[in-house]
Amino acid sequence: MGLLSIFKKKDASAEPQKPASVASKPAETKKEVKPVADKITLGYTHLSGCTGCTVALADNYAGLLTLLDKYVDLKYMPTLADARHIQKVDVSFVEGSVCINDKLAVEEIKETREKSAIVVALGGCACYGNITRFSRGGQQNQPAHEAYLPIGDLIKVDVFIPGCAPTPQMIRNVAVMAYLLLKGTKEQKDLATAFLTPLMKLTEKNEACFCELMTQVINQGLCMGCGTCAAACPVNAITMEYGKPQGERDLCIKCGACYSQCPRSWFSFDVVENYEAINEAIMAALQ
C-alpha cells in the first residue's frame, strides 16, 4: 500500500500540465509550447506486423491524447507521424517480427535496440512470431522472404506485451508504468518495477501458443478451470470441456494471450492485491 499512496500524491501534482508538441508537428508551425520537461520519449518501430498493434494503441481514444499531452513525447512512429528515421528514445515499442531475409528489417531492429533504453515487444508477432511463424516463403514478388523471427531472437527485449491484437488498456498501463519507472520517485519506481516484472520475465521465452498452457499450466497440475484462457483467445481456439481448456491447435495463431492471461501462468500477489488502488491511479493519471 505504501507504494500506492505515493503514486497518488504524485498524481495530483502531475495534474496541470502544458500541452506538448508531438514529432508529427509540421516543421512550419513553430509557435507551440515545447514538450513538458519530464515526459518520456517514445519510438515505434514497425516491422513485419499488420499495424493492428498500432490501431490498438490508437484505440485508447481520448486517453491517447492525454498520454501524449502529459506523459509521452512521440519521437518516431512513421504510421502516425512524420519522423522517418529511428531516434534515440527512452522507450521503443516494436510491432511485428523480423524478416531475416530483409536487410532493412534487420538493421532497423538492431538500431532500435541501440537507440532505446527500454525495448517493448508489442503484440504476438514481436513477442512470439505469431502468424509469421507459419511463413515459409515462396510468394512473389519476394519469394525469398521466408524466415521470420520474434525480435527477442535478435536483440535483448525488456518487456513483452503479448496478444493479437494487444489491448489498448495493456498498452496504456505499460506506458504509464514506464513513465513512472523513468521519471517517478523512488516509490513510484518500485511500483512500476513490481508491475512490470512479470512482463519482463515473459521475455525469457520467445515461444508461446496453446502448447504453453498445456506444458506449463495443465501438465504442471496448476489449471483450476477458471476459463480465462478461453475468453482471452482471439481466434476462439480454446473451449472449456468439462471445466478444462481444450485447444484447437489448428486454429491457434501463436499469440500467447491465453498463456499470459492465465492466472496460473504467473500471478503476483504484491501487485494484484493492490488492483483497486493501481487501477484508480492509472485512471486518475489519464483524467
Binding site: S48, T51, V55, S135, H145, D250, L251
Partner: peptide, 30 residues
C-alpha cells in the same frame, strides 16, 4: 514491406484457420 507469404502459408491449412491468418495481414482493414 517484407512479404510474409500468407497466400503460400495458407496452403494445406484448414479453411477455418486461413481467414483468421488473413485477417492479420492488415490491422486497419482486417
Amino acid at each position: 514491406t517484407p512479404v510474409r507469404g500468407v497466400e503460400k502459408l495458407a496452403v494445406g491449412k484448414t479453411p477455418e484457420q486461413v481467414p483468421k491468418i488473413a485477417s492479420r495481414v492488415c490491422g486497419i482493414c482486417p
